[in-house]
């Protein structure tokens, strides 16, 4: 064996041991570095994906327009096309007003962010958003939409962050059930059903499907009180406690825009 190969193997052994012994602080720093490296690819890829999606929507609108033209032969074709174009703009405008309105109505200081993509990790539920430490984002900040709680920031780089969704097994949220004194801990599950499990409820809790569940906002916790978390789907008593299955309030499968709660107003 050549000397250079022996030296390479020794270097390799040292590196392997060093990598295995890295502490969580160093790992977080390295993870932030990796996010920084993939940030340009994620952002440009997300933009391309969005453009392709919009192209599909535009084609669909043209199909719909064509169908309408055929039904309304008496109407002026040019005027109808212009009206449809204006309607699209109006829809966009209404959507933006709704988003802006929620931001202004909210009692929290909110930082809007775009979802760049869902992470490919099979056993973890995380998404990437286009805001990072440059926008004042820090780990453990809650992430919400106008519908309800989305999750919490789990890793941050300069202009990209990772959000752990409420449907992840590791995202535990103290929650209370509307109209009762029941409180419990909500978390996702490894079995990917997209539901939440609210545990540590009373065995005798009389919960009905459709009841709303909100964050309890315990002291020392990271989630403020009163954010919609989900709706009760079912309840069953277990050996020591009661467990409710919840449907998340926010539609986590089709997230496009979210808000990071950076503090109270």
């Amino acid at each position: 064996m050549k000397k250079i190969q022996i030296a390479s193997l020794v270097l390799f052994a040292v590196l392997t041991i060093a990598v295995c012994l890295l502490e969580s602080g160093t790992l977080t720093w390295l993870q932030s570095g990796l996010l920084r490296v993939i940030s340009p690819i994620s952002r440009s890829g997300s933009a391309v994906k969005s453009n392709i999606g919009n192209l599909g929507k535009d084609l669909l609108s043209l199909d719909q327009l064509q169908a309408e033209h055929e039904r309304a032969l008496a109407e002026n074709r040019k005027l109808r096309a212009e009206n449809n174009g204006l309607r699209d703009l109006q829809q966009d405008n209404n959507h933006l007003r709704q988003v802006l309105g929620y931001r202004e109505r909210s009692s929290f200081r909110l930082v809007p962010a775009l979802v760049l993509g869902h992470d490919a990790g099979v056993w973890w539920s995380t998404i990437k958003i286009n805001r990072g430490s440059a926008d004042g984002i820090a780990p453990d900040m809650p992430v919400i939409t106008d519908k309800g709680l989305v999750g919490k920031v789990s890793a941050v780089s300069g202009n990209l962050s990772e959000v752990l969704l409420v449907t992840d097994e590791n995202c535990k949220v103290a929650a209370k059930v509307e109209g009762t004194k029941e409180q419990g801990i909500s978390a996702g599950s490894r079995d990917p059903g997209g539901e939440l499990r609210l545990t540590f409820l009373s065995k005798l809790a009389d919960l009905q499907p459709g009841q709303k569940v909100y964050t309890a906002g315990v002291s020392g916790g990271i989630f403020p009180s009163g954010i919609a978390l989900g709706t009760v789907k079912s309840f069953h008593a277990r050996e020591l406690d009661g467990e409710a299955i919840l449907e998340p309030s926010a539609d986590l499968g089709t997230l496009e825009e979210v808000f990071i709660v950076s503090g109270a107003k």
């Binding site: 990796l34 994620s42 890829g45 993509g117 869902h118 490919a120 990790g121 990437k128």
Partner: peptide, 21 residues
């Protein structure tokens, strides 16, 4: 890192939300 970024952008395979790695 390119593979990591691209696999995050790929859509999940329905109906089990399986991912392409």
């Amino acid at each position: 890192p390119i593979a990591v970024a691209v696999q995050d952008l790929l859509p999940a395979i329905l109906p089990f939300q399986a991912r392409i790695l």
